[in-house]
Design a protein around this nucleic acid. Sequence first.
DNA 1: AAAAAAG
Length: 619
Amino acid sequence: MAWADVQNLTHQTRPSRPTYLPPHLRQLGARGGCSNRNSFPPPAGPSFNQRQRATPYDIITEKLEQVELTDNGNVINLDAYEDVPVEATGSDIPLAVKSFGEIEMCEALNENIKRRKYVKPTPIQRHAIPIVMARRDLMACAQTGSGKTAAFCFPIISRILGDRFGQVVVSGHGVRTRIAYPTALILSPTRELSCQIHDEAKKFAYQTGVKVVVAYGGAPIAQQLYNLEKGVDILVATPGRLVDMIERERVSLKMIKYLALDEADRMLDMGFEHQIRKIVQQMDMPPPGTRQTMLFSATFPDDIQRLASDFLSNYIFLTVGKVGSSTDLIAQRVELVQDMEKRCHLMKLLSTQKANGTHGKPALTLVFVETKRGADALEHSLSMNGFPAIAIHGDKVQRERERALRSFKSGATPILVATDVASRGLDIPHVAHVINFDFPKDIDDYVHRIGRTGRAGNSGMATAFFSDKNMPLAKALVELMQEAKQEVPTWLSHCAQNFVGSVRSTRYGRSKFGGSDFRSSQNDYYYPSTNSNGDANSFVDTCADVYNAGGYAAPTSFDNYASAGDRSSNADYYGAHNPGPYAHYSSADDYPPANIDAFAARSNGNEYGYGSIVASGWD
DNA sequence: AAAAAAG
C-alpha cells in the first residue's frame, strides 16, 4: 500500500483505495470512449441547467404517447401507457427525455440498455432520469410494474461513471481496507427485493467497472463482507443487515452521494421508520443537500411524505399515473366471501383455472393472506387437496423463502401463498392472477399486491375476497376501482356508501386521488371524524338487503348479523342457482381468459357455473 | 393486530 493511502486512512476523505477499472475501460478517460465524457458534469449540449424551465415553481402535466417496451425479446406493450398523466412539481424541473439516446451516458451503459432490450424509456424513466442526472432530489410515485428500478439505477450508474472519469485513477491492485465506502446506497424493505434490485443493477453495470454489492439478513454475513472488501460503488441492502455492518465498522456511509429508498413509503412507516432514521440521520451519512436522495414508490400517503421530506432538499415531486392508483391493465374483481368460506371458495376458483397460461408457461397464481400461520395453513390445505402450492413468509428461513420463490417463478409450484413479504416490488413474470384471500388492512397494500400482476404492460387479473371485517375499506376500494376504470359490484358500492365508522387516516378513507404533492395541500390533512352512528346491525342489514335484492343471494354472508337463524348450508348455497362473477369459467379450458376484454365481458355474468369440486375433505 | 428487518 502506498504511503499516501495509509495517510488517507486517517483523514476524512475517502481512502484512496484504488478504484478497479477493467482493462478495456482504463483509457477511456483520456481517449473519450465515453460518449460524452465531458458531460459529467455538466452535461454537454444543452445542459440540464439550460433546459430547465424558468419559473421558480413549476407544475408540468402532460400526456404521453405510446411506449414500446420489450421483455425477453418480445414486444409486449405498445399502448399500455398511453394517456398516463404525468405531473411534476417543484422548482426548476428538468425536461423529460423521449428516448434513451437523449440521455448523456457512457457507451457501456448504452450497450447494457440494449442488452436488456429496452427500446424506449417508460414514463417514469423519461422523467426521473433527467431529474437525477441534474443532481436533484426526487420523490417519485409511479404505478407498479412501470420500471422504477431502472429509473434510479441508470442515472446512479451514469453519475458514478461520470464522477469517476473526472478523477485520476490510482493504479495498483489488491489493496483492501476493512471499511467499505459505497458512493450509492439503495435500501429496500425485503431481502428478496434487495436481491432483485442487485441483480438488475448488476446487469446495468455490466462492463462499466461500477461494482454493485448486496447485503441482507438471513444469509451468511461472511460472503457479503468479502464482497464489500473487494470494493463497492453501489450497495443494495435491507436495513437490519446494513446497521449490523455499520456497527461492526465494516461499512461507512461517509462517502454516500446517492441514496435511493425503494418502496419508500413502506420504509418510513411505523415498523421501519426508526431504523431508516438511524441509517440516514444518525450514522455518518452526509446530510440532505450534500447527497442526492431519491424516494420511489407506487403509493405515498401524505403523512409519510411529510416524514420523507426530512431526508430531502428542494426536491421534485413526480407522479406517473395517479398516486396510489393501480393500473387499468389489471382486471379487478371483488367477491363477498365470509371468512369461514374462503378456503372452499378459493379451491373452487382454482379448480376452474386452466393449468397453462400464455407463453407456454403455467399460469401463476399468487394468493395473499394476512398472517404467517395462515400462509402455512393454506399451503397445507391446498397441497392436501391436490393444488400445487408453496408458502413464503418471514418465519421461514431465508433458504426456504428463496426456494419457494424460485419454485413459483419456474412454474414448478404454480400457486404461491404469501404474506406481505411478497407484496411489494417483486417482479415475477407470468403471474396471471393475484388473489387477495385475506383483504389487506391498508388500501395501499392492496395496490402493491395486485401490482404483482399486470407488469411491464402485460395484462393481469386480481380477485379479492371481501368479508364483513373489511367494510372499513369498502369506500377506498370503490374509489380505487373507479379510478382504474373497473366495474364496481353494486353490493360493494352500497357497502361503501353505508359504512360509517371510525376511520383512522386518509389511507382508509382516501377520497382524493391525484393531488399528490403534500407540499401543495398543506392544509387539507383529512382525519374523518368517528361516527357514533356506525351501528353494525343497521349497516349490515342494509348491505344484506342490497345483496339479496340484486339477485346476489348470499345466505351465509351476512346472516350472522342480519338473521341468526338463517344459516343455510354451503351445499345449498353453492347449488345451481348461485350467481357470481365466475359464471363463465365453468369450462376449465376457458380459464384464464385470453385477454382483459374477454375477462371483462365474462365478468358481467350473473350465474355461477363452477365446475365440480375436484377435491373433497376440506372444510 | 400483522408483517418486515439483525443474530
